[in-house]
Every structure is written in C-alpha cells, then in structure tokens.
Design a protein around this nucleic acid. Structure first.
Lengths: 192, 192
DNA sequence: TCCATACTTGGACAGTTGTCAAAATACAAA
DNA sequence: TTTGTATTTTGACAACTGTCCAAGTATGGA
C-alpha cells in the first residue's frame, strides 16, 4: 500500500481506493482469486492500470487494503488493562459478529477458492495479525515458562481458527457454542 | 504436482525432479522468493522450461515438492492407537529434530524473506497440514464440546507455532524447553 | 534387435506483470 | 483567477507466465 490507510486522505484518493476495493470484492464473489487479474480489476473499477499501481504494489496489496476495510470495524475495547480469558472471549464475540456480517462474502469466497488456497491463507493471516496486535501488549499470564509473545500468537491463531472453522468451514455454530469451543481450546496459559 | 511423489517413479523422473528441487533450494538460500523466476530455476537446474511445466504447475507447486522432500523424513509413529498429550509431545520431538537438521536453510530463508511473506506462510501451512493428517484420526479427547477435527487442527497449528517461533523466529530454544512450551499451550483439550 | 509408447525438448504464442517518463489534469492557496 | 504542486493518465517497454504442438529421444517389452 502506497498510501497509509490510517492517515486521512483527500476525497479523490479515497474514492479511487474504494473503487479498486469494490472491484476486488465483486471479483472475489465471482471467481477464484488466481483467475483475477490486475487488468480485470482496472476494467471493473474503470481506472487505468497505472492508477492501480499508483496505489498498490500488486493484487495482494489490494487484498490487504480490502481486509483492512473490513477489519476497521474491529475496535477491541480493553475494559481492564490486564487481559484475561474472559476479556478475550468478550472480544471474540465482537469479531464473531463482524464475521457474521460478512458471511455472504465469505461464503462466495469459499465457493470459489479451496480452503487452503493462497487467498484464504492471506485472509487468515491478516486477521490473525490484527488480533495479535490488539492483545499482545497486555496479556495476563499464569506463572508459565512460555514467552508472552508466543502465548499471544497462540491466542490469536486460536481465535481465528475457531472463526475459520465456522465461517470458512461451513459449520453453523452459534456464538455461545463458539465461545465454548474457544474456552476449551484456550484452557491453557491464560488466567481464568 | 503432475507426478504423485508417493508412487515410485523411473530413475529419470526422480533425477529431474531432484534437479528442480535442488535449484529451488539453492535459490531460496540466496534471494527473496518473489524474485525467483521459473526461468531462473530452469537455468540452475539446466532443464528447459517445458520440462519444468511437465512436472509442476508453477513455482508454488515446486515448493510443495520441496517441502514434501523435507517432510518425507517425518514418519510419525503411533505406539498406542489413542493419541494423548504425551504421544503428541513424543512426535513433536521428532519434528523438532528434523527442523533442526534444516536450520541453516531456514535461517537463509528468514534472512531473505519477511516472516509474514507468502513463502513462509506456504511453508507453515504445508507442515501444519502434514501434522494434522498424522494426528486427526486418533486423538483421545477429554469429554469436551469442541469437534475433534477442530481440536486436531488446533494441535497441529500449535505444534507448528512453537517450531516457527524457534526456527523461523530466531529464538534459541532447547528441545526440553520447547516441549514445556508446547505442553503449556496445549493444556487444554488433550488428555493428560 | 526392433518397435511402440512415453517422455523430453525447442520454439512459438497470447496474455500478464510491474515500471517508467512525459503529458494532462485536478487541486489548493494566494 | 492565477499559479505552483501533486496526482492521474497515456502509451510503451522488457520480462515472465502458462500453454501448445511437433520433432526428437529414451525406455522397456516382445
């Protein structure tokens, strides 16, 4: 990404970025990711190729931006500065609901791309990183040997694992059950 | 992969595949993966491009083959048909030692590729799948709600997570400590 | 040994990619 | 409105990709 999406940009820049992201979302809903070309994105968005490369390095970079737009809504609140398991589960509920909002998009993506495709991995990886960032600094650990960063990594992958199971693995699981799964899987290092 | 690597192939086929894999390993040790082209692989291996495409769909497909050659050595033995935590840790030791054998390669890869690059993700994902396959069928679960497949997925990602931390994250951790980490992280669903 | 079959190779192909410099346009401040 | 700056667009470029076919070469069985 050549423009920092966290900084406020001019109206024109945002409009253009939105057009590209929209084109990508539309393409994603229709066909496998590896059949999507930059040319096609530009045609859909009705911008020339050079403009695409003004904003993004390649189509993965645009993907990053697309996930960013979705993840923007994730705003993890940390009521107490020490994050324990119940706080994590609270935050989990928030992300569950967010994913639920996009379940049609995810459905389409899974219909067009294998679960172990580059695309799905990219997606999973992006959100794991988002969650990692939001929990790494204030995990409240039991007295254990494992380094905190590794535990934080483990928590974020576990959260995304459960959500992947539900929203990309086509398993219909209620929020309550999902919380139970997460709780059971996490019954390790984080304080109860 | 256009030839099933599990089937025994003619000497010629194996020699050719080995040449391509060797070329890839050499390139990986030298430069970032996204700067490696099929042309370059062919030059190094001294085979024409058409031959490359006889064997592999693209450079990721060759990567699969490369990881396959490494993973071949992983032969998880299952002493008792019900896998519990101590069995998992036993198998973990085996994979730890395998990764340790290749630590110079991994070092080079990390020096040339960001930890969250396509290449590293591809690697991580491949080995997670290998481990998942080897443990999914006979996990001995506590009485829990979480589906067995999800637990198996969780175990395999946790194992790889620890190994990634050590061998790709440049953290020097002994096998004994690594086992403790894994034990702590896994203190959830698997039988003790 | 010969032959049929399978694999390898070279060359050519259209399409994609990422980059560049120069021209055109939009934009904001004076 | 004008002017200077920043962004967008155009068109062109070399390189890479994946596919194809037809000619060449191994290989193993009779």
């Amino acid at each position: 990404m050549k423009y920092d999406p966290n900084k406020k940009q001019s109206r024109g820049i945002e409009r253009t970025q939105r057009a590209f992201a929209g084109a990508m979302f539309n393409s994603l809903a229709e066909k496998p990711f590896d059949k999507i070309t930059v040319n096609e994105i530009c045609q859909r968005a009705d911008y020339p190729r050079a403009t695409f490369y003004n904003y993004f390095n390649d189509k993965f970079d645009l993907l990053d931006f697309c996930w960013y737009k979705i993840a923007q809504d994730i705003n993890i609140e940390i009521p107490n500065p020490n994050m324990d398991k119940s706080t994590i589960i609270q935050n989990f509920a928030q992300i569950y609901k967010l994913f639920d909002q996009y379940h049609i998009l995810f459905q389409n993506i899974i219909d067009n791309n294998p679960i172990d495709s580059q695309l799905v991995n990219h997606f999973i990886h992006y959100f794991t990183a988002v969650i990692y960032e939001s929990i790494k600094s204030n995990l409240n650990l039991k007295a254990i040997k494992t380094p905190a960063e590794l535990v934080a990594q483990h928590c974020s992958t576990t959260i995304i694992e459960v959500l992947k199971w539900i929203f990309l693995g086509k398993h219909d699981v209620s929020l309550e059950d999902a919380e139970d799964y997460l709780n059971e899987l996490l019954s390790g290092p984080v304080h109860v």
